[in-house]
Design a protein around this nucleic acid. Structure first.
Length: 567
DNA sequence: GCCGTTTTCGGCCCGACTGTTTTCAGTCG
């Protein structure tokens, strides 16, 4: 439904409709996409217009969609343009106006059609579109065609950390931070934004563009440099004067929605936010802020952590003082999903346990695969018992960390588990996960998960939706039913911190949390290095508004074990 | 099309850049 409203917004924009009407549809779509509950439920309870950005008109559209599965309005809009116009918007340099003219005047609705029209000169002949623009568009189409999709955070984040170190050493630099979507820890990023302050902006930008990591320069402005770095990631460095860093960083962290709402709030207070500072409309004075904390305070708000800045109620919460502190990496006391050489991991039980100890954890559960997963050398009943003996032995030998016995037991296609109940009952922690028959329909898949959760030995559902970021769609689930069952059966749902999974994803985490579901943030590490994935999972939990009390492995060990016993 | 302890009508973020113009429309972030 969110995609449908985004579709409508694009088409209205191409059509040249009132820009605010366009924005209304777009905002409504985003609200629905982030909704923490089922839209149908909201409709049945007559609360559609409670959704921010949804009024009478859009509520009617939602209703039509839910009742009939279709939307006449969208179909009419689509009929006005060649199919595929929206794709033209993906080409940098083509906005709604150009897309509208290309489709209306030349009947273009595809990249290929546009390429042909550029080649035979029809594009350059349009008023206000010269030969130079046509040439630029041709290059842009070709780039778009072979463009890699957004970079996964797992790839971009380490690069950003290296860039921060590099930029910090450049001449003139005072402060440096990531900005944009990478600072908000979205699961994918379009580019890596680095935001800094410098006493000599020109010199810093020059030095940046000359540094060895920079492969080619895309653009250089007075306060901004954009470059491709080795590996193909695009990096944008933006700089301001040191006294303005707070406002500058805030502006360039976004999100767009968050900033727009913050602008509204500033407007209500007779202020206007700019890149340089806060403009008092009463006397035209500019207030400058070197820290974000001071800026938010000036607007009467508690500080809003960057991961929460998506325009999804965080400003209201910060205003009313109800924004609770999100969980931090240092709150994490253990890791409840790890693999070793006993199944498909690369390091021993002892090595993984020591690795967790080195990361400051108080406990770790060793959870290798069960037998059904042939490819992963899953453990049979006999091998589980052998492994438990070794786990107990390592636990005795190591001081300062508790090593728990566990398993990642496979949930079979029929919902039964891959190991007998009496064996599972002997283990400290049981993670149950789906690894096969992922194409099942919603009904069957939901029953499969509910059956697994109903088993009192199951403590955590691993990677609950089985999605792969940029790779595999999530399994089909009645999520509301799964969340309800998680509460009643005292089963935690996992945030799998592996950056390729990040499953549950942020908006589902928020929904789960609101229903009182406990979350376990686990690395699912298959080697020592992957133990460092934890912070990605913590970021997802923060984006899902989880505090430490919501996170099972932020609890002391005795409470975790009590939860697992389901008292 | 949405929204409201300044408003139920009149607002809704904005500055920089680019190419095509000769003062500005369109795109981008």
């Amino acid at each position: 439904m969110a995609a449908i409203f985004a579709d409508i917004a694009d088409l209205l924009e191409i059509k040249g409709e009132n820009a605010f009407k366009v924005r209304a549809y777009r905002r409504a779509g985003e609200s629905i996409g982030h909704l923490a509950e089922d839209v149908a439920q909201v409709m049945h309870e007559g609360r559609l217009t409670d959704i921010s950005g949804v009024g009478e008109g859009i509520a009617r559209r939602i209703q039509e969609l839910l009742m009939t599965g279709r939307l006449a309005y969208l179909e009419e809009l689509r009929a006005e343009f060649p199919e595929g116009v929206r794709r033209l918007l993906e080409v940098p340099g083509i906005g709604p106006k150009t897309a509208g003219r290309l489709s209306k005047e030349l009947g273009i609705g595809s990249f290929d059609g546009l390429e042909t029209a550029i080649a035979d000169g029809r594009v350059a002949a349009l008023p206000r579109l010269g030969a130079k623009t046509a040439e630029r568009l041709l290059a842009a189409i070709q780039a778009t065609k072979r463009r890699d999709r957004r970079a996964p955070i797992g790839l971009a984040w380490p690069v950003a950390q290296e860039l921060l170190v590099m930029v910090r050493r450049l001449p003139g630099v005072k402060e440096v931070s990531t900005g944009g979507s990478i600072r908000r820890m979205r699961e994918t990023v379009g580019d890596v934004d680095i935001i800094g302050s410098s006493e000599d902006i020109d010199a810093t930008l020059d030095a940046f563009l000359r540094s060895p990591g920079v492969a080619s320069v895309i653009q250089r402005d007075t306060r901004r440099a954009c470059a491709l770095i080795a590996g193909g990631l695009e990096v944008e460095l933006r700089l301001c004067a040191p006294p303005d860093f707070g406002v500058f960083l805030q502006r360039h962290t976004g999100s767009k929605d968050h900033n727009a709402l913050l602008d509204d709030r500033a407007g209500e207070q007779g202020l206007r936010l700019t890149e340089e500072g806060v403009l008092r409309l009463s006397d035209g004075m500019l207030e400058r802020f070197s820290t974000e904390e001071d800026l938010y305070r000036r607007l009467g708000l508690a500080f809003i952590p960057s991961e929460l800045r998506e325009g999804q109620g965080e400003i209201e919460a910060a205003a009313s003082g109800s924004l609770s502190s999100p969980v931090k990496l240092v709150d994490i006391k253990g890791n409840l999903h790890t693999h070793t050489t006993w199944s498909d991991g690369l390091d021993s039980i002892e090595a993984m346990a020591r690795g967790c100890q080195a990361r400051g954890y108080q406990y770790v559960a060793i959870t290798d695969h069960s037998g059904g997963l042939g490819v992963a050398h899953g453990l049979s009943t006999a091998r589980v018992r052998e492994q438990v003996a070794e786990i107990r032995e390592v636990d005795r030998r190591l001081d300062g960390i508790r090593v728990l016995s566990g398993i990642e037991v496979d949930i079979r296609a029929d919902g039964s588990l891959d190991l007998p109940d009496d064996l599972l009952a002997e283990l400290d922690i049981v993670v149950a996960s789906v690894h096969s028959a992922m194409g099942q329909d919603e009904d069957r898949m939901t029953r499969r998960l509910l059956q697994a959760m109903a088993n009192p030995n199951v403590d955590i559902v691993g990677h609950p939706t089985c999605r792969i970021v940029g790779g595999r769609e999530p399994i089909r689930l009645d999520l509301a039913a799964v969340l309800r069952a998680a509460v009643t059966t005292k089963t935690a749902l996992e945030i799998n911190a592996a950056p390729s999974r990040l499953d549950l994803k942020d908006d589902l985490v928020r929904r789960a949390r609101e229903m009182g579901v406990k979350i376990a943030i686990n690395t699912d590490a298959h080697n020592l290095d992957q133990l460092d994935f934890m912070h990605f999972g913590v970021a997802v939990a923060r984006r899902g508004w989880c505090g430490a009390p919501d996170v099972l492995n932020a609890w002391p060990l005795d409470e975790v074990l009590a939860f697992a016993r389901k008292f």
